[in-house]
Amino acid sequence: MPASIPLKLSEMKRLAAFAKREGVRAEVEFNGFIFRVAPDHSLAKNDGSEESELDRELAEFDRKHGYS
């Protein structure tokens, strides 16, 4: 089982916001583990009633790694 990375949820969200704002993919590497975020280039509109894919992925990451 890989060790958890020392990356806080707030840092992940900040990185995701940067990637979305600048339209680039951002990466952070810790001991061979790479955390990547990229802007969503799909044309589908998010009406706010459903979490975005990134929100779901972050929530899953939090559950998996014990963040609250």
Rank of each mutant, 00 (worst) to 15 (best):
39 P>W: 07
29 E>Q: 01
58 L>C: 08
16 A>N: 05
4 S>T: 11
41 H>D: 04
67 Y>D: 03
24 V>M: 05
57 E>K: 14
56 R>Q: 13
18 F>C: 03
62 D>H: 10
34 I>W: 12
44 A>L: 11
32 G>T: 14
65 H>A: 02
8 K>L: 05
36 R>I: 02
32 G>N: 08
31 N>D: 09
37 V>C: 13
47 D>G: 01
34 I>L: 15
8 K>W: 02
58 L>H: 12
40 D>C: 08
15 L>G: 14
46 N>H: 13
49 S>M: 13
1 M>P: 11
22 E>P: 04
59 A>F: 03
2 P>T: 12
15 L>E: 15
14 R>I: 04
64 K>D: 14
10 S>E: 14
42 S>K: 00
32 G>C: 05
2 P>S: 14
29 E>I: 00
29 E>L: 00
47 D>I: 02
31 N>A: 06
49 S>V: 13
54 L>E: 08
63 R>Y: 01
9 L>R: 12
48 G>K: 13
51 E>P: 15
60 E>M: 05
19 A>N: 01
4 S>V: 06
37 V>H: 04
20 K>L: 03
35 F>S: 03
26 A>H: 06
34 I>H: 13
55 D>T: 11
50 E>K: 15
18 F>E: 03
33 F>C: 08
11 E>K: 00
15 L>W: 15
57 E>S: 08
48 G>A: 10
22 E>W: 03
66 G>H: 06
6 P>W: 06
51 E>Y: 08
10 S>H: 14
29 E>K: 01
20 K>M: 02
17 A>G: 09
19 A>P: 09
26 A>S: 06
18 F>G: 01
11 E>R: 00
12 M>K: 00
14 R>V: 05
65 H>F: 05
51 E>G: 08
3 A>F: 00
41 H>R: 05
57 E>G: 03
25 R>D: 03
6 P>Q: 09
17 A>M: 12
25 R>H: 03
19 A>R: 00
66 G>F: 00
24 V>Q: 08
29 E>C: 00
52 S>P: 13
3 A>I: 06
43 L>H: 03
41 H>M: 05
51 E>M: 10
40 D>F: 07
41 H>G: 07
41 H>Y: 07
26 A>K: 06
66 G>P: 00
56 R>V: 11
10 S>D: 14
46 N>Q: 13
55 D>G: 09
62 D>W: 11
33 F>Y: 08
6 P>T: 05
55 D>W: 10
17 A>Y: 08
9 L>D: 09
23 G>C: 00
32 G>F: 00
36 R>K: 01
9 L>I: 11
4 S>C: 01
18 F>H: 07
53 E>D: 04
1 M>Y: 11
4 S>F: 02
60 E>R: 09
33 F>A: 09
26 A>I: 01
55 D>V: 11
47 D>A: 01
3 A>G: 07
42 S>Q: 03
60 E>L: 11
16 A>G: 10
42 S>P: 04
36 R>M: 02
23 G>E: 02
58 L>E: 08
18 F>A: 03
34 I>P: 13
44 A>C: 09
50 E>T: 15
55 D>Y: 08
49 S>N: 12
11 E>F: 00
31 N>Q: 12
30 F>N: 07
56 R>Y: 04
61 F>W: 14
37 V>Q: 10
43 L>E: 02
30 F>C: 09
14 R>M: 09
23 G>F: 00
59 A>V: 01
23 G>Q: 00
